[in-house]
């Protein structure tokens, strides 16, 4: 909608341009800013002109520019398939720089797709809406937050005085639709550490309609060292992170998820339901992770056997690598061999 209170629109091209005048607000994609009246805003400062790189693959992991659109992140995550996904990358959508390849060991990049799908926003909005905008808007249902929280994402924040600070993305939302940034602070990038990107990760969402705005988005991952991390978003007013030394048991996980504070009621779901389905989705993820790890352990064992010229006569007995007697059926956990970074263990 037209924002009639706005009387100026300026592109920020340098850090100096980021100084806000009274009444000015930063605009990334603008898809939320233009979706509601903004009675206290009189000017927009367009961050998309800053020219921040969208995707950088660095030693420490992944660096997503705050103005990277969801479509671009998805194109990158999909790898080569992106070329055919958007044959008409012309005009404003054309890229001067090629997106870097996705390192093969970063299997958690597979979370990008379900995270994008967890947005109520249609694929048409993904071309404009940005990852940083979704984070800074800090709606509980913002699934780019779910993605970043799932993977220990760190927000890189530019401060008005020229300094820079970092904070876990999990701490960026300060409420449903409120963030922890001070006025004048700008989210510059989101950094995802490599260890999290190498994890096995899952995301599940539920809403009051099949593709509706999320009532709960639950993530779970198991790192190479076996440590497990579960993220509860959308269901709680701000993100909650649960960490385990190893994949927890069904009972332990349910207890921890149900025991979280922060569940709330709004038109997207009632508190009791959010609590209940968060535990259900977390368990479904736990079960998937367990199965996947077991499968990878099997594949790794078979692969090892093959490379040493010894035929694997039968699948590895899962119980042989289980270290948690509480759940005998567990296929793998902290004790299972880590997949190799070259991706040979990918199913």
């Amino acid at each position: 909608m037209d924002i009639t209170t706005v009387t100026s629109f300026r592109a920020a091209r340098s850090r100096a341009d980021l100084a806000l005048a009274p009444g000015e607000a930063f605009m990334a994609g603008g898809t939320w800013l233009l979706s509601e009246p903004q009675p206290s805003t009189t000017g927009f400062v367009d961050l998309t002109a800053m020219g921040w790189p969208d995707i950088e693959v660095v030693d420490a992991g992944l660096r997503i520019g705050a103005t990277c659109t969801i479509a671009t992140l998805l194109d990158w995550a999909r790898g080569a398939a992106a070329a055919s996904a958007h044959p008409a990358a012309t005009g404003r959508w054309a890229r001067a720089d090629a997106l870097p390849p996705v390192p093969e060991a970063w299997r958690a990049v597979a979370l990008v797709e379900p995270a994008a799908n967890a947005l109520l926003a249609s694929f048409k909005i993904w071309s404009t809406a940005t990852v940083g905008g979704n984070l800074c808007q800090s709606f509980a249902a913002g699934s780019m937050i779910s993605l970043a929280v799932a993977l220990d994402g760190v927000a890189v924040v530019w401060q008005p005085d020229g300094a820079e600070r970092r904070m876990p993305v999990a701490e960026l939302p300060a409420g449903n639709g409120a963030n922890a940034l001070a006025r004048g602070e700008v989210l510059r990038a989101i950094e995802i550490p490599a260890h999290a990107l190498r994890s096995e990760a899952r995301l599940q969402k539920i809403a009051l309609a099949e593709l509706g705005r999320s009532g709960a988005v639950i993530t779970g991952r198991v790192d190479e060292d076996g440590a497990a991390t579960f993220g509860v978003t959308a269901a709680t007013i701000t993100p909650r992170v649960l960490r385990f030394a190893a994949l927890p048991s069904t009972e332990e996980l349910r207890e921890r998820v149900e025991g979280l504070d922060g569940y709330y009621s709004d038109p997207l779901g009632a508190e009791d339901w959010r609590r209940g389905v968060s535990a259900v989705l977390a368990e479904r993820i736990r079960s998937q992770l367990q199965e996947s790890i077991a499968g990878r352990a099997d594949a790794a064992a078979a692969g090892d056997a093959a490379t040493t010229g010894v035929a694997a006569a039968s699948p590895v007995d899962p119980s042989a690598v289980s270290a948690r007697p509480a759940v005998p059926s567990d296929g793998a956990d902290a004790a299972s061999p880590a997949p190799s970074d070259d991706g040979s263990a990918r199913a």
Binding site: M1, F9, F44, H86, W93, K124, I125
Partner: peptide, 15 residues
């Protein structure tokens, strides 16, 4: 918009 579908009600005209 430049070949891609968008919801024109939330696209800033200034761009």
């Amino acid at each position: 918009l430049d070949g891609r579908p968008v919801h024109s009600c939330i696209i800033p005209a200034q761009r």
